[in-house]
Amino acid sequence: MLVVALSITGVINRTRALLAGRKGIRFFQHIYNVRLQLRKGSVYSTTTTALFRIAPVVYLGSTLLAFLFIPVADLEPLLSFHGDIILVAYLLALSRVAIVLAAMDTGSSFEGMGAAREALYGALVEPALMMAMATLALFCGYSSFADIFSTAQEMDVNLSIVLILVAYVFFIIMVIEAGRVPVDDPKTHLELTMIHEVMCLDYSGVDMGLIHIAGWLKNAIFAVIAANAVAVTISFHWWFAAPLAIIVTGVAIGVVESLRARNKLSRNITYILTIVAMAALVLLTGFLLIQNIEI
């Protein structure tokens, strides 16, 4: 799981470099960068309050906690109880609230814009997340990630197509949450077009490092859930699911970022709502299939 978190960014960078015909940076360069940041001090703007300083810790803390509930195929998660899927969803929401509030706290017009965008997209993407999780819960009758995936492998083949669609939904949610192309562009230097990056403009040193780490964990959470859903239908072992999560998501993001332009900002809403609609369809299909089987 941790390996997944640390590797995805590396795979993305590699894929992008390869497609651009460049040599590219070291595979673990992002980790070196963060290590450097963690060794540095932080500079705080005079307009900020304690809220601004607490936010990165809350952001990382809640993401980390959510991270602990996620199993990698047959590897048990560290924490698990009935209903933890709801907790995970809200832990992720909490992390978002923390960073949005911190961005507002700086009083910068850029960060205010970024916070408004993040809050809007967060609110829009949440139904998709909930419905995708609900689909999983529906299939298995359980409401914890560990139980869901351990029982899922005994399920009907009919459901596997639905599970793959669930995986796709999780993948897109990951793209949105991580602020990658086509929703956001993490490589841009243009503050006016940023969503996620612009909220972290005032952070430096340790805080920036924490935010980066939280970002990796968040990526890993969604990538692993998606990989689990696929693994259930093919081969339910951690040695299958983990590389799947790293390589497929990493390469897919890298390719998308190289070969297309990002959306016009106003089109993002349509893009996210499409995923919500898809999640709703998946849930409905899953529900109908389950009904048929029981009748």
Binding site: A20, K187, T188, S258, A261, R262
Partner: peptide, 12 residues
């Protein structure tokens, strides 16, 4: 222009 819309291929 390609850079600004995150279109890496045409940029390079």
């Amino acid at each position: 222009l390609a850079t600004d819309i995150g279109f890496q291929l045409y940029q390079v």
